[in-house]
Amino acid sequence: MSTTYVVRDSMTMLRRNLRHLSRYPSLALMLLAVPIVFLLMFVYVFGGTLGAGLPVDGGGTRADYLTYLVPGIWIMTVASVANGTAVSVAIDRTGGMFARFRTMDIARVSVLTGHVLGAVTRTLLALSVMIVFALLLGFRSDAGFVGWLGAAGLVLLLAFSFTWLTVAMGLAAGSIETASNTPLVLMVLPFVSSGFVPTEQMPAGLRHFAEHQPFTPIIETLRALTAGTPVGHEGWIAVGWCTVIGVTGYLWARRQFARVPVR
């Protein structure tokens, strides 16, 4: 099948996913609500105390903690949308839609690509809202155009990678309930990273784990890009983690989709 047909069928599946979003606005609100609640809670409930523990001269303020926190909240937003993608894939899988699609004269890859492109679109919309919301709370950045462009590129790569992983999780799940629970690890891991507190304040064993799991270099890279400071080697580690996650998710998803029975 030619590339033209693959692109055409992928765009058709993308429109299908976006129509589902417009028909179920409560789902979009829920995907936004979780990161917004975390942002408000950590800034206004814990921000004063956690800000004082930041590694700045004289301790940080609530405003300093907001600046520190925002990149981690962006990661939570990406993970939240990816979690919803696993559920939507499981609904199509258990409801027989994938089996029907496999009997149709369409590019097979377009079925999964439509879910991925739809999730990335939702992620960009959610992140746009989160950036505006953070600015209203007082978030400020010293980054220039290049820094923001780099941050946007990294978040887009992360969203693409996580979505393929959660698509695979949704396909592998035996039920919708399982699909909604399996990706929760993506929501938990940011808490055991540098997203909310510096890793230097953690116990030795936990600190070692936090510094070597995928989220910490990604968050630190976003933090440097939005602050206008040098990224260093963390940037390459972040891109490497995103690439590994994306390739693993894609191969796993393709293998699971091939096992879907044809009806």
Results as ranks from 00 to 15, higher is better:
F98W: 11
E234F: 07
T103K: 09
V56T: 14
A28D: 02
F101K: 08
A79F: 03
R254K: 11
M130D: 02
F215Y: 15
L186P: 01
N181W: 12
V37L: 15
F196I: 12
R93F: 07
A258G: 13
L54Q: 10
S141E: 03
E220A: 13
P217H: 03
L184M: 11
G246K: 00
D105Y: 06
W148E: 03
N181M: 15
R15Y: 04
T166W: 02
Y24P: 04
W236Q: 13
P71F: 02
W252L: 13
M13P: 04
L137Y: 04
A253T: 08
A107N: 11
T85F: 07
D105C: 04
V34M: 09
L31C: 09
T199G: 05
A151K: 02
P198G: 08
T163Y: 04
M187H: 13
L32P: 02
Q256N: 12
L27F: 09
L156G: 12
Y68Q: 09
T182E: 09
G72M: 02
F46K: 08
P35M: 05
R207G: 09
G47L: 04
L125K: 00
G138S: 10
I75M: 14
W252K: 07
T221I: 06
L127H: 03
L50M: 15
D9A: 08
A258R: 15
A28T: 14
A168N: 03
V262I: 11
V87Y: 07
A159Q: 01
G96N: 05
R122E: 10
I73E: 12
V155A: 12
F46A: 14
A28G: 14
M187P: 00
A90V: 04
P55V: 09
R8D: 07
M97Q: 11
V120E: 00
S22K: 08
G195W: 00
L40P: 08
A143M: 10
M30R: 10
